[in-house]
Each structure stands twice: as C-alpha cells, then as structure tokens.
Amino acid sequence: MIRFDRVSKTYKGTVAALRDVTVDIRRGEFVFIVGPSGSGKTTFLRLITKEERADEGEIWVAGKEVGELPPWKVPYLRRNIGCVFQDYRLLPDRSVYDNVAFALEVIGRSRHFVRSQVPQILELVGLGGKMDRKPNELSGGEQQRVAVARAFVNRPLILLADEPTGNLDPATTAGIMRLLERINQYGTTVVMATHQHDVVDAMRKRVIELDHGTVVRDQARGIYGMVDA
C-alpha cells in the first residue's frame, strides 16, 4: 500500500530529514512511526501525501509512484488518504456536521451522498448527538473524533495520523486509539506518528523507529523503546 524505496529528503539549508529510507507497509496494516523530535516522522507522512517531494528514491502509494504524479493528479491521490493532526485543524465557524460534510462537498460528492454518510460516520465516532455543536463547544478528545470522522468519511485506503493524541489525557487517548483500531479493522491502512511510549506499548503493533532521518528499527508487534523483540 505504501512503499519507500531508498528515499532521502533534505530541506533547504538543514541536515537531512530522511536518509535512505526503505519501508514497505502492506494493505490493512497498523504502523507506528516513533522517534525523538526532529527525527523525520512528520516528513515521512508529508511525503506520502506529496506535500513534500523526495530528493531521491521512489515512493509508491496505492500502486502509484508519487514522484511521477503530475500536479493535477495529486488531489486524487489525497482522496485516498485521510489525515489527522495533533491540533485537529477543524473549521471553528462550522458545526461538527458541517466540518465533516465539507470534506465531501469540496470533492464534489452529491448532496444525497453527504446526507447519508455524515450522520453515519459521526455515529461511528460517538458524536451522533453533538452534530450541531461548534468545535469550541467540544472537549479536545471530541474535537479529535470530529477530525477522525472527517478523515475517514470518504473511506480512504490510508489514514495518516501525526501525533493525534499529543494533546489528550490518557483516558481520552485510549478512546481515540480504540477508534483508530476500529477504522483499521474496516481495512484502512493506519500510519501513526507518535512519541508517546504508553500508547505504542499498549497496542503491540508494528513499530518503525526513526533517528536523525534513518530507520533504526522496524519491528512487528513492537513496543516503543525496546531494542530486541
């Protein structure tokens, strides 16, 4: 589903953010990307959505080589990928319902489709009763659920989450993780960057550890800091 083949990325005037990264993530996997701050986790995710370009190597996403995609095809790539962030990135002047509906409207989905999908997805994330609230009338955990609903409403092949629980307390974090696991069970490939040990340790999923832009560990059913399985 996602394959990095000897990928390197250097931002202007800094040391390499990713160095010779080769990784293969299969359909339906749940993968953690871990590593200290500045190790290249966010860069890894931004290369998948082509928000950044690789300097070297090939990146294959859903059967396409991202570097070869002409700019006009990039939006169609992104329709296959849902994204969730630490800071939610909701639209503050729109209701919960409208935030999720927006993601479908702007890719030209029919009204009928929007009306049938949005309540269903909000029910799934446990916000069926709060569809008319504004984001600032929700807790952090609830806001992140809206963001997950927005990322998932178009049933993407891939869900990327960049420290989605970074701002949340442990109980709320557990709730979000259960939600991501559930989405993963529907068949969506989930890639989550984090530096929260307990989150990784509790899930026992595949762990890819980055350090200074290189993959130092790639372990099935790993925990955050362990060197040997």
Partner: peptide
C-alpha cells in the same frame, strides 16, 4: 486560509479551490 488548507488536505482540485 483554514478552509483552503482543509480542501487541499482532503483532495479538492485546484480549480475547485
């Protein structure tokens, strides 16, 4: 700018934006 960022994220086409 927030709406535009979300539109890019979810794959709205350049023309649509």
């Amino acid at each position: 700018r927030r709406e535009v960022a979300v539109m890019k994220l979810v794959g709205a086409t350049n023309w649509f934006i």
